[in-house]
């Protein structure tokens, strides 16, 4: 993340997941302070975005640094989820 990008994030602004996806499409976002609805689902009201990155590997050192200030940190891809390749492919 560049300095310009870092400035673009309002550190006090809490965003919903829909707002996060709209603002940072196809990126890894690092969030903290989410008000989770329960302990099973990916459902929260709002969260604080600590950073947004094009790659998980680029995000990793920033996540590590975030743990110096936050007890809970998560990172999520805002784009399409694909998952593992299929084990069986029909010819």
């Amino acid at each position: 993340m560049s300095i310009t990008e870092a400035r673009a994030i309002d550190r006090d602004q809490r965003l919903s997941w829909a707002e996060i996806c709209k603002r940072f499409p196809d990126e890894w976002v690092v969030i903290t302070g989410a008000d989770w609805v329960n302990d099973t689902d990916f459902a929260f009201g709002t969260a604080l975005v600590l950073g947004h990155y094009t790659s998980r590997k680029i995000a990793s050192p920033h996540i590590k640094a975030a743990f110096q200030h936050h007890r809970e940190v998560g990172s999520f891809w805002t784009g399409k989820l694909r998952g593992p390749i299929p084990r069986f492919i029909l010819p």
Binding site: D41, F42, I63, F67, H70, R71, E72, V73, G74, S75, F76, W77, L81, G83, P84
Partner: peptide, 23 residues
């Protein structure tokens, strides 16, 4: 196409935890 869920992993001394998306 797949079932995506979320999980948590705690640090070695349980002072912090990291959330991640899993299949």
């Amino acid at each position: 196409d797949l079932i995506f869920v979320e999980g948590w992993i705690w640090s070695p001394r349980a002072e912090s935890r990291r959330q991640l998306r899993l299949v």
